[in-house]
Design a protein around this nucleic acid. Structure first.
Length: 910
RNA sequence: GGGCGGUUAGCUCAGUUGGUAGAGCGCCACGUUUACACCGUGGAUGUCGGCAGUUCGAGCCUGUCACCGCCCACCA
């Protein structure tokens, strides 16, 4: 016996255990050896992570697809795994060390620290896996992978070596985005431009030759800057070649204040006469644009900042290379060396000001680059790093999408993808971290680099090169986390080995992810997949919305605006949360989650539960071999057809990734068709004297419930599996699991006659109920009903459904005849239904009601008339549209006429 | 500066071939029916952001404006 309400907490973990024990999630089951594969790789969550709403949405949608395709008979692989998440994880463990007052990373040393991270990963790294299970995810956990597993690490090394040998990975000295807090380079994508209110300092640089005089503008040139502290590294002042104001100065020098260095005034089109003073100071070692200018003019690059972004003047041979250190400069060096960049800024401004070298200071709003992890202001810095030639790899990746080998859903994301890919920059892949894949490059005594998959191979190369064995030192850097993520679709399947899984499941069918990682991840997988496998990694990319907070902001731990999906699961059950997310996942729109919606879908689960309970109480048991096409009772033929329409709607919607439509269709069917009407309508049959009809109805009720469970299962796996199991013991499919049950097939069950008849029945009941409520007829009062003008068909229908009508419309009898006087009258198709309520109801009110009805129909007729009177409409609109309007008009007119008659009759009673 | 998306019932949002505006929640009234009060029955509420255009017909197509949001970008 089922409980009165569904209690998810009582069954979820047990149900999940049953699935796992039955190996229901396992790919490559022998029974499906002949089946078409269906593969999805999970976007690997960070091992540091715990389940947030984004994960909940992302994995719900994947699980819906996976369960759907599994029921459709495919050999499903949902490949799970986690990502080592270099920076994020290293930060977590470092913070932990700090909290526990243990020696820090550097004190521990690299090996001990990495051991510590591994230990942490083993202890709490699989938290998120448990949480995905609570959500109901049917991943093949036996194939769980981690980006730093030996196999995946081997894939990383091999790809690195292959790309290096192909010239697509190279080492280069250029400016990088340097995070002075994390002390590592990061890629362009990891930099966030933040609007900042700063200042624009206009500095006077004295021109070499004339004596500097603050009142004489010809003795100096003004440059504007947002970062005065970098002036120590200036190596030129640039003006636009066409700028008349400065043309005469081109080729002259200025004396760099505080330093005394002579630097040239050069002409370069980078200088924008509109901006600042029109003359710009050039600091090639600390600004990306200046770097390019410096390259063009062969300027020296003077680095004046340490990795920690402190002034680095001493010892710094670069800084003093071009200048004879004067006593003043020595004093400056002494005072400024080692000062953090922002403090140094003030000190330098003060010193310049003291020398009358500040023309003016303006407030200035601009964007400042910040590291997305540390939130520190990024410092462009000249360093040696490893790069991937992304532009070359991007070409086939662009082509594959253009040719439709991979499709984005919704399609408009392709624009974003193309735009980025077509302007892609070299990808900096080295990170000055310890946690991650150490770069497989070794250096000889003369810094000659040997790239190889392991040390032995590198040593062999070195021996070959030097003609004798030499000791090598390995590159200390690790690779960007996204380098290994980019290999995920094939590295998880065993590549570089030629495994059967790789052959069977690559390319995968669909990737489900949020748009925020199109560049980080999708683009890289496309590039790597095409390069390594010579085939796209997935056929479809379904891009879903982000779950945002009330202000439309991305939820993130640092912002503290996170709604915990586990709380919602605790309160309402995993099914309710899943259904909510699926129902709200309309394409191309963000999701703002409201708890009341989750509660509503929890109620839905309970509704379904009680429908099953009704079946249980009434002996509705699935019968083996039952063919719904053989049903004789109209009601049963109707519900069979309705269930099949729902099957089609859900199937089509899921095939097109329209999750919200699929969810809506099954919701509507279960609640508003099966429960609201079918179960109510069959009560008289079940209680009636026709044993055959009752038996057929019991079977059909169970059959349709089974269908509902099947169609709902991808969305609400727990409650449906539980109800499937609890169906009467002798039922069809006893002992089977719903998760492995087949998706229903289309049999052509819809029947127009049954639809028309039950449609009429529903309308009859609804109209009577509506009028009763409006006329304030007490709900408990049973009243008689008189039908006039009924056709033969209507009479027959009334006869067939009399008990039902009496019960659901709260009538005590139905007879045919003239409408009695003072009755409430309802127009139903050709007939008039009269409720003789003289004395009970207010005739005035009924008269008003009828007039209102007449008005409504009247205005409808007017509207249609206007259309039909429009000659252009009649001549240009398609025939069926015009015909439709004519039909609507004649129907409306018939109703109007009957209402008029009804009104007359009523007034006669007064 | 470039690109994308949004503006529909009090709230959160659906609305894919242009042809009678929908759901959930909330609200109001009533509670007969032994599946369900996590419920039932009935009800109210919209110049579909503004303007212009295309069309017989526009929430849907085009242009434009306004406001909101996101992404990309080297603006001293």
């Amino acid at each position: 016996m089922l409980d009165k309400t569904y209690q998810p907490q009582k069954i979820e973990s047990e149900t999940y255990r049953v699935w796992e024990e039955a190996s229901a999630f396992a790919a490559g089951a022998p029974a499906r050896a002949q089946a078409r594969p269906f593969a999805i790789v999970i976007p690997p969550p960070n091992v540091t992570g715990s389940l947030h709403m984004g994960h909940a949405l992302n994995n719900t949608l994947q699980d819906v697809l996976v369960r759907f395709e599994r029921m459709r008979g495919r050999d499903v692989l949902w490949q799970p795994g986690t990502d080592h998440a270099g920076i994020a994880t290293q930060m977590v463990v470092e913070r932990q060390l700090l909290e526990r007052q243990e020696p820090n990373r550097r004190a521990m040393g690299r090996e001990a620290f990495n051991e510590r991270v591994w230990q942490w990963k083993e202890e709490s790294g699989n938290t998120i896996v448990g949480q995905l299970k609570r959500l109901g995810c049917s991943c093949d956990w036996s194939r769980l992978r981690f980006t730093m597993d030996e196999g995946l690490s081997r894939a990383v090394r091999k790809v690195f070596v292959d790309l290096y040998r192909a010239g697509l990975i190279y080492k280069d000295k250029r400016l990088v985005n340097w995070d002075p807090e994390l002390l590592t380079a990061i890629s362009d994508l990891e930099v966030e431009q933040l609007d900042t209110k700063g200042h624009l300092w206009h500095l006077r640089y004295p021109i070499e030759g004339p004596k500097f005089n603050p009142d004489d503008p010809s003795s100096f040139i003004v440059v504007a800057t947002t970062r005065p502290e970098t002036m120590l590294g200036d190596t030129a002042v640039a003006v636009h070649p066409d700028d008349e104001r400065y043309r005469h100065l081109i080729g002259k020098n200025v004396i760099l204040p505080l330093v005394g260095r002579r630097i040239p005034i050069i002409a370069d089109e980078y200088s924008d006469p509109e901006k600042g003073s029109g003359a710009v100071k050039i600091t090639p070692a600390h600004d990306f644009n200046d770097f390019e200018v410096g390259r063009r003019h062969n300027l020296p690059m003077i680095n004046v900042l340490s990795p920690e972004a402190k002034l680095l003047l001493e010892p710094n041979p670069e800084f003093t290379q071009n200048v004879e250190p004067s006593a003043e400069l020595k004093a400056t060096i002494l005072e400024l060396n080692g000062v953090f960049r922002f403090a140094a800024r003030n000190m330098i401004v003060d010193r310049l000001d003291a020398q009358n070298l500040i023309e003016k200071i303006e407030p200035h709003a601009h964007t400042v680059p910040h590291g997305d992890r540390s939130n520190a202001v990024i410092e462009p810095r000249l360093t040696d790093q490893w790069y991937v030639d992304a532009a070359t790899l991007a070409k086939p990746a662009i082509d594959a999408v253009k040719r439709g080998r991979t499709n984005f859903v919704p399609k408009n994301w392709e624009t974003t993808y193309f735009h980025w890919m077509e302007n892609i920059q070299p990808w900096c892949i080295s990170r000055q971290l310890w946690w991650g894949h150490q770069i497989p490059a070794w250096y000889g005594p003369d810094d000659k680099v040997f790239v190889a998959e392991d040390e032995a191979a590198a040593l062999a190369q070195a021996k070959e090169h030097y003609g004798k064995p030499v000791p090598l030192e390995r590159d200390e850097d690790v690779l960007d986390t996204w380098f290994s993520s980019g290999l995920w679709p094939f590295s998880t399947l065993g590549w570089p080995d030629h495994t059967p899984e790789l052959a069977r499941y690559y390319p995968t069918d669909v990737l489900v992810t949020g748009f925020d990682i199109i560049f980080f991840w999708i683009a890289r997988m496309m590039m790597m997949g095409l390069y390594v496998m010579d085939e796209v990694p997935f056929r479809d990319v379904y891009i879903h919305a982000l779950v945002r907070d009330q202000k439309g902001q991305k939820m993130s731990k640092s912002k503290g605006n996170v709604i915990d999906p586990l709380d919602l699961i605790e309160t309402y059950g995993a099914d309710a949360l899943r259904f909510t997310l699926a129902a709200m996942a309309a394409q191309g729109r963000d999701i703002k989650l409201s708890p009341s919606r989750v509660e509503g879908y929890r109620n839905f689960a309970t509704k379904l539960w009680n429908a099953a309970r009704f079946g249980e109480i009434n002996g509705c048991v699935p019968r083996a071999g039952f063919d719904p096409a053989t049903a004789k009772v109209t009601l049963n033929r109707w519900i069979a057809g309705e269930s099949e329409r729902t099957l089609a709607a859900v199937t089509e919607a899921l095939q097109a990734f329209r999750f919200n439509e699929a969810a809506g269709a099954i919701y509507h069917f279960i609640w508003h068709v099966y429960c609201d009407w079918y179960l109510e309508l069959i009560k008289p049959i079940l209680a009636g004297s026709d044993a055959d009809a009752a038996a057929e109805t019991r079977t059909m009720a169970a059959f349709v419930l089974d269908r509902a469970l099947q169609l709902l299962h991808p969305f609400m796996p727990f409650v449906t599996e539980e109800l499937w199991a609890k169906r009467a013991a002798e039922g069809e499919g006893r002992g089977s699991l719903l998760i492995l049950a087949p998706w229903p097939e289309h049999q052509g069950l819809a029947n127009a006659e049954a639809d028309a008849e039950i449609g009429w029945l529903i309308k009859f009941i609804s109209e009577v109920r509506s009028v009763r409520a409006e006329m304030n007829v007490p709900a408990g009062a049973k009243v008689p009903l008189v039908i006039s003008g009924a056709s033969g068909e209507t009479s027959a229908r009334v006869a067939r459904h009399e008990e039902t009508l009496l019960r659901l419309a709260r009538l005590d009898q139905i007879e045919f005849g003239k409408p009695p006087s003072g009755a409430v009258q309802i127009v139903l198709d050709e007939a008039v239904l009269a409720l003789p309520l003289a004395g009970i109801i207010d005739i005035d009110a009924e008269s008003k009601r009828l007039k209102r009805e007449i008005d409504k129909v009247g205005s409808e007729i007017k509207q249609i008339d206007a259309k039909l009177a429009n000659e252009k409409f009649v001549s240009r609109a398609p025939e069926h549209v015009v015909e439709e309007q004519r039909e609507r008009k004649s129907e409306a007119e018939a109703v109007a006429a009957k209402l008029e008659q009804a009104l007359k009759r009523l007034e006669a009673a007064l």
